[in-house]
């Protein structure tokens, strides 16, 4: 049996020991305990939104639009939007978890304050919370696959790789979202998040190819994480992996690293004033 002091002292020489105690799993354990007694309805209904979009746009718009030409040839409109909606739901879920939930814990319940009075560091908290959010993203992605596969919208087995990709995308969004949330103080400010996100989602090609845009708009959209997320999933879905797929992938790797760095620093500044 090692004491709390021995455990902390053992890490004293490791780099980054001030911000990371190597115990993100304690935060995950906490979340799983909290889950046991939390209400299931909001969690269980979380996957439903992309499915509704799929039904509505697939059936309703398909008749107006017909086929869409993609790098994998002309595909039915419903097939075209399916991967885009998977990506969108992964991003949305991650954003919800890392903004509203984190906002509550930061401002209302002072939960992080309690955590950071222990040897845990801000990176433990950030990583733990984000990884936990990814479990939810993972289960939504799986649910989406289970619904779309029987409808004949999943072209091949390799499209299953879209699930880990969706989790990666969610990771990027969650780590950034948490940092940004740390700046907000009121619910009204939180409302602004939605109005910034809405165009990012609407314009990023989940519902139609962005080639319909003028060049300057197309270029701008290509800078957005939402576009990279949708494209990455779409590439995997249709099995067209090329250089651009890797550029999407690296976009998210960079986003994760920057987001974690940013969040850790913010948490440290907020609670180590």
């Amino acid at each position: 049996m090692r004491s709390a002091v021995e455990i902390a002292d053992a890490r004293a020489d490791k780099p980054g020991h001030q911000i990371y105690a190597g115990r993100a799993r304690a935060i995950i354990e906490r979340a799983s305990i909290a889950l046991r007694s939390s209400t299931w309805v909001p969690i269980a209904t979380g996957f439903i939104e992309p499915v509704l979009y799929l039904l509505a746009f697939g059936y309703g718009m398909g008749a107006l639009i017909g086929d869409i030409s993609t790098s994998a040839g002309a595909v039915d409109y419903t097939v075209f939007i399916a991967p885009g909606l998977l990506a969108t739901s992964a991003m949305n879920g991650a954003i919800y978890d890392s903004t509203w939930n984190v906002f509550f814990k930061l401002n209302e319940s002072k939960l992080y304050q309690g955590m950071l009075a222990t040897p845990l560091g801000p990176l433990d908290v950030a990583l733990g919370e984000i990884i936990w959010a990814l479990f939810r993203g993972l289960s939504y992605s799986i649910a989406f696959m289970l619904i779309t596969a029987p409808l004949g919208l999943v072209p091949s087995w390799s499209a299953l790789l879209a699930i880990p990709a969706a989790v990666l995308i969610a990771f990027g969004f969650a780590s950034f979202g948490m940092a940004i949330t740390s700046y907000f103080k009121t619910y009204q400010q939180m409302g602004l998040i939605n109005i910034v996100l809405l165009p990012m989602f609407l314009f990023s090609g989940s519902l139609y190819p962005i080639s319909v845009y003028p060049d300057w708009l197309e270029f701008t959209i290509k800078l957005l994480p939402t576009w990279h997320g949708i494209e990455l999933i779409r590439d995997i879905w249709f099995g067209v992996i090329d250089f651009s797929s890797f550029s999407h992938l690296s976009y998210f790797l960079v986003m994760i690293v920057l987001g974690l760095f940013f969040t850790t620093r913010r948490l440290r500044d907020l609670f180590m004033r």
Binding site: I65, G66, L202, L207, Y208, V212
Partner: peptide, 15 residues
């Protein structure tokens, strides 16, 4: 803008 114009283009092209 996003749907009216974006999808509008596809709709017009198609039907």
């Amino acid at each position: 803008v996003a749907i009216g114009i974006g999808i509008g283009i596809l709709v017009t092209e198609n039907s």
